[in-house]
Each structure stands twice: as structure tokens, then as C-alpha cells.
């Protein structure tokens, strides 16, 4: 190591990856950001408008309303994931870590939806909840919910469509937090738990006193992964509700709003500059989340840990 005059080999090792990564990830990202600072005229020329597009997005009623609507819907989407997907994932991981027989079978099954395409999962659930197929209504009738306005049209009601889609997404993605929690739980030395059990501690106590404190760092990782995934989501809404994210834009999230802005819809053409602006806002939101995680959460974690 560290003895050659010019480290050609380092360049050779690094160059291909850095080149592809810079060219197809960093450069397009910067180009998009630059593009969001311009507006195209009718004759196709581009004029520099500085932050004009961002101001328009946040103040012009035609843009402000759909933007904040998509943003808050996305927040709801994220909150549902945080409050259901991750706790249930943790519960499943704890059950799987409790040395029962056949744990690997359960683990393999529960992870299966995660490897399927969101398009297929969304479409399959749409069929199951469809009023035409005789699955959902007979089930509701048996439960005595046959007259419930919301239950009979889960994907059609403004009050329930977003929640339903979030639940479908939770159903699909629960495997990821489950696996990460499971990994963290397995790494806990079994002597610790056995010692506590010998002392007569209940499983509940063992979990809160020993297991949970040791997997707290994983909780942070899961949270930030969920955050990035959710604010970047698109496929599920597009596949089940279409690009208009109905009813009445109640399932519109940042991804679908970006798609519609960029590509346009029905009789309206898209606006690439505003599309880039929406993407710029998404980048800002995600970066804010990541920084919060790195500086808020992880710093504190380092202090807590040994």
C-alpha cells in the first residue's frame, strides 16, 4: 500500500463506477435542478427565471392546492406505514426470533409479496376489492357491513381510498422491516435473554427491557428507509387509481403529482420545467428527512451506544 508514485490502479478501479454513477445519477439530478430554474416560451426557447417556478408552485392557487394536497396525502401515507408496517413488522420479527419450529417457512412466505412487482400487487388487490368480483361483497354481507357506504367502495371513497392503498402497500412491504428487525434480534446474545428468563421475567418484560433497547438503531434505519420509499412512491397509485389519483385527487401523492405535471393529462400537455420543479421539491423533502435522521437521530444514538 501507499508506495507507488501515481496510483493508476486506484483510478482504474474507481473510474468505471464513478463515471456511470456521475453520468446517469448525479448529472441528471443536477440537470433537472437546473431545468427547474427555467421556463420555456411558446417558441421553445428557455428563459432563466431563478426560483420563479418554486414560488409559483408554492403560491399560485393552480399549483399550490394540488402540491399541498399531494404533500399531505404523502404524509398520511407515511404515517400509516410508520404506525402499522413497522410495529407489525417488529411483532412478526419478535415471534420469528422466539426459536419456534418452521420459522424459516413463515419468514419466506411473509417476505414473498415484497419481491413481487407493485403493479401486480396493486392490480390483484383492485380485483379482490372490485364490486364486480364476488369476493368482497359476500365477505361484507357476512360481517354485516353490506350497507356500509365506505366499506362497499373502499377504493372509491375519498375518506378510505388513501388508507386502503396504504394498507395494500403495508401488506406488500412489511417483509423489509421484519427482516431488518429479525437480523437485529438474532444478533442479541441469547445468554442475555436466557438469564432474564431464569430470573422469571415475562416475555413482555424481556422484550422491553432487553430486546427493544438493543434494536433501537434499527428502528431509526427502518424509519428513514420507509420515509425515502414513501415520498418516492408512485407505482401503486398509478396502477390502481390511474394518473389522476382519484377520487377527487384524494390519493394523489408526490410521485403521481410529479408524473402528471411532467407528462400532462388527458387534454392538457405536460410541463417539463414545472415537473422538474416538483422533483426538486421532492428532493428537498427527502434530503430534509435524511439530514434530520443523520444529525438528529443518529448523533443521539452514538451517544447512547457504548
Amino acid at each position: 500500500m501507499r508506495r507507488k508514485p501515481f496510483p493508476w490502479h486506484i483510478t482504474v478501479f474507481l473510474a468505471p463506477a464513478v463515471l456511470i454513477y456521475t453520468l446517469f445519477m448525479i448529472y441528471p439530478m443536477l440537470a433537472s435542478l437546473k431545468f427547474s430554474l427555467y421556463q420555456s416560451l411558446d417558441d421553445g426557447r428557455q428563459v432563466f427565471v431563478a426560483f420563479g417556478n418554486y414560488i409559483k408552485l408554492l403560491t399560485d392557487p393552480n399549483w399550490k392546492e394540488p402540491f399541498w394536497n399531494a404533500f399531505w396525502n404523502n404524509v398520511v401515507f407515511f404515517v400509516i406505514h410508520m404506525s402499522l408496517q413497522n410495529p407489525i413488522g417488529l411483532l412478526l420479527a419478535v415471534l420469528l426470533a422466539s426459536n419456534i419450529r418452521g420459522a424459516w417457512i413463515y419468514r419466506t412466505i411473509i417476505f414473498t409479496p415484497t419481491i413481487l412487482s407493485v403493479v401486480l400487487v396493486g392490480f390483484a388487490w383492485k380485483l379482490i376489492l372490485s364490486p364486480t368480483w364476488g369476493i368482497w361483497f359476500p365477505l361484507l354481507d357476512r360481517l354485516g357491513l353490506g350497507d356500509n357506504e365506505v366499506a362497499i367502495a373502499l377504493l372509491g371513497n375519498e375518506s378510505s381510498a388513501l388508507i386502503t392503498l396504504s394498507l395494500i402497500s403495508v401488506w406488500q412491504n412489511i417483509g423489509i422491516p421484519m427482516m431488518l428487525f429479525l437480523a437485529a434480534l438474532i444478533r442479541i446474545p441469547s445468554e442475555l435473554i436466557e438469564a432474564a428468563q431464569v430470573d422469571g421475567a415475562s416475555s413482555w418484560r424481556v422484550f422491553w427491557r432487553i430486546q427493544f433497547p438493543l434494536i433501537v438503531p434499527t428502528v431509526g434505519i427502518v424509519a428513514i428507509l420507509t420515509f425515502i420509499g414513501n415520498f418516492n412512491a408512485f407505482d401503486l397509485i398509478y396502477a390502481t387509481q390511474g394518473a389522476l389519483a382519484g377520487p377527487n385527487y384524494s390519493t394523489d401523492i408526490m410521485g403521481t403529482f410529479f408524473f402528471r405535471t411532467f407528462f400532462g393529462f388527458q387534454l392538457r400537455p405536460g410541463d417539463p420545467n414545472m415537473g422538474a420543479t416538483v422533483a426538486g421539491m421532492m428532493l428537498l423533502i427527502i434530503l430534509a428527512g435524511v439530514l434530520l435522521y443523520l444529525y438528529g437521530w443518529q448523533r443521539r444514538m452514538e451517544e447512547v451506544q457504548f
Binding site: 376489492l129 372490485s130 364490486p131 364486480t132 361483497f137 362497499i152 367502495a153 373502499l154 372509491g156 377520487p247
Partner: peptide, 16 residues
Amino acid sequence: LPRGFKAVSYSDAQQL
């Protein structure tokens, strides 16, 4: 309109 019409898509209606 049909039961659960808010969730009835175009192709659902054709089917019904």
C-alpha cells in the same frame, strides 16, 4: 347507480 358505484370502474360497469 350500482352498489359500491364509487369503486366501480369502466370495465366493471361493462362487466355488470
